[in-house]
Design a protein around this nucleic acid. Structure first.
Lengths: 238, 238
DNA sequence: ATACGTTAAATGTATGACATATAACGTTTC
DNA sequence: GAAACGTTATATGTCATACATTTAACGTAT
């Protein structure tokens, strides 16, 4: 008898948000497309401008659209990228939901797998890129560039694993470890001296899946020794 | 000579958003706390209500606060959870940025690791929960509950790995595979007959890390055979 | 003690006005 | 003809005010 469902008083702005989101997800608007202007949306949804604007603001905050001002402006559907995952990981770390140690351990488990897959799928073009990156590693440039050079190999391998989910996760972890550790110890050479990647690259280029996995694991263990104790100090100096 | 920096015309609502976000991240407001009311924020930031509201809307869309209406209402800082990652994964899949196959493969690589870690950290209480879940698995209830029962073991193991990042990733994958495959084939018994988890549980409870890893991998391979071909059919029937 | 109405405090919505950003077009100037 | 400049049109961004709605808490009558 008690089958009455509660009346859900959904807010108008949320309703508009939902409908627009669905339209994007269903492909009715795809990346680069412009959503109808505020004025048109007001008419179609028969709501006030306030409501439309808040809905679009939410879409923007969720990373589904970018808003451009001006004559040819409007809300344009964004090419969805895996950056969202990275940014969320950042949030989680800074809100104390993940310890630095957990991130490092996760990377220790995942990146060897990625390296193995990279070895499995390595093409001559990939090999060329890897060797190039490896040669450039010892260059010393300005601060942020050095970090980029030093982790380039890791990003390349992530791109080679042929699985966009693993690529995204791996890149998030690499980026997170990098940004956290360099915040604490800006001297790149101390936390990651150049030339630590030779054996990994050799194995990957040889297509040696197990070898690449093993080499990456060994490298990360070495690296983590250098980073040991960083988290406490970081948390202290906050 | 050309050292002039471009004037960044940051929108007022974004500025308010950023300041509030920083306040949350820095711990000035923590989970459960109430942000100042719109009226107070208007005064403190010296902006219009529109701006304040849009900023708060963005915080809500990013999952940082929940907004409650009414006398004791306001914007309350949300306990940040790993659900965000899951929701991102959902978005990415539905926007076609990940194939079902990629998700399954990622799970195939990650979940055995998680199972191994679970074995490493298994306590008697954990063992009890696992055995309970295993016993309940063959019960047949209403539709959504059955799916829950059948995947309970996986969620339990995810919680046991002692690494919140891996827990979150693993759960996202489990949830995603579950929801996608059941959308295609609602008959739970066909895609995942009960009783497939015995060997995994035995190994985990025995603390046999390698064994648990191996058992999980075998289970997933079996499972994926059943799911083979789902994606194409799914994409077609869309 | 329960039921009910009142009140107060918050967010939600509507509307109109004006500010600002930006591309496109036209016009002047050389 | 091309570059510089002003004009205009069309977006979004901001402000201000009024009113609607939701919700908890308090008071009051039954």
């Amino acid at each position: 008898m008690n089958n009455f469902k509660p009346i859900k008083q959904i807010k108008a702005s949320d309703e508009v948000f939902n409908q627009l989101r669905e339209a994007i997800f269903s492909g009715r608007f795809s990346a680069g497309d412009k959503l109808p202007s505020e004025r048109e949306l007001i008419e179609k949804f028969a709501v006030s401008r306030t409501v439309v604007r808040e809905a679009i603001k939410s879409l923007e905050a969720r990373g589904l659209v970018v808003i451009k001002q001006g004559a040819t402006g409007g809300a344009f559907v964004k090419e969805m990228t895996f950056d969202r995952l990275s940014s969320d990981c950042n949030d989680l770390f800074f809100l104390g939901k993940m310890s630095f140690n957990e991130i490092c351990q996760a990377r220790l488990h995942i990146e060897p797998i990625v390296a193995g897959l990279a070895a499995k799928h390595c093409t001559p073009e990939h090999a060329k890129l890897l060797l190039e990156a490896n040669a450039n590693e010892s260059l010393t440039l300005e601060y942020p560039e050095t970090v980029m050079l030093r982790s380039k190999i890791h990003y390349l391998l992530a791109d080679m694993c042929n699985n966009r989910f693993l690529t995204a996760i791996d890149k998030s972890l690499i980026q997170l470890v990098g940004s956290i550790s360099s915040k604490f110890q800006p001297d790149t050479d101390k936390i990651h001296p150049p030339g630590m990647h030779h054996s990994i690259i050799d194995a990957v280029i040889a297509g040696d899946e197990a070898g690449a996995e093993q080499a990456m694991r060994a490298h990360l263990l070495d690296f983590l020794v250098l980073l040991d104790g960083i988290e406490e100090e970081y948390r202290h100096t906050q």
